[in-house]
Amino acid sequence: MRQSLSLYLYLIRLQLRTRLQYRASLIIGWVAQAFGYASVYGAIWIVASRFEKLGGWVWPEIALMLGFHVLGYALGALFTLVQLRRMEELVRLGTYDTLLVRPVSPWAYLVFSGFNIEYGGHIALGIGMMVWALPQLGMDWSLLTVLQLVASLISAALLTGSILTMIAAMALVLTRSRYLFGIYFDFWELSRYPITIFAMPLQFVLLSVVPLGYMAYVPIAALLGKPVPVIGEAAPFTAILAGPFMVGVAILVWQSCQRRYQGAGG
């Protein structure tokens, strides 16, 4: 176990050193991606400020939710997205087979050797928006609420990582899974808004089958003391437990796909 951990840390260090060779390019990438996100948030700001409220939420509340959303996503995706999006290619070209004979879990190898620091822009934007929004909301802070915020942020990151892992695992069985990432991002985009703007069946979907409602809406609604449909009083707990729960599901899915994997070539 300790040996594996030090190997993972070494893989991350290796990746960091490689990426830091092209610093200017890295920073330009951060700025451009943050601009891409900020533009969409700008469009949401225009709607929220023009009509005062969106789904019963005012702009500083929405800003806090958007900041939390992009931060939680970035913390999960830097371990998973770019690495695992290549899964179908790894399967098709037979590269995945070479990972199976290494003395380390193929998932862990992929995740840590591809540790992606391109999310600097996301993280700065997310923290910036939260820091801007929090003082305007006049919340009563206590040790418990701080812990709740941190724990639900970790849960959002775990949720991102585990859903992306499950989608990637599908490539082991279906060979093609890239379009599933597209669907993930469509639902992910829905999860940027207070889900009360959607019709009831879609709210239910976002809180159950496609649990992206727990990415930002449930945690922030729980912190702000806003009523949450379907789960009600349980919101603060589900916000913290959704991520760890999905990690468990993802482990089961990954293992079962791995068992069914037969290779794509001859």
Binding site: L54, G55, I183, E189, L190
Partner: peptide, 23 residues
């Protein structure tokens, strides 16, 4: 499916602000 979700997101926003928003 992606197209449908995209439409739902946009229409829901306008329904929400027109029915419940001020301005």
């Amino acid at each position: 499916l992606s197209g449908v979700l995209n439409v739902i997101a946009r229409v829901s926003i306008w329904q929400s602000v027109f029915l419940h928003g001020a301005g």
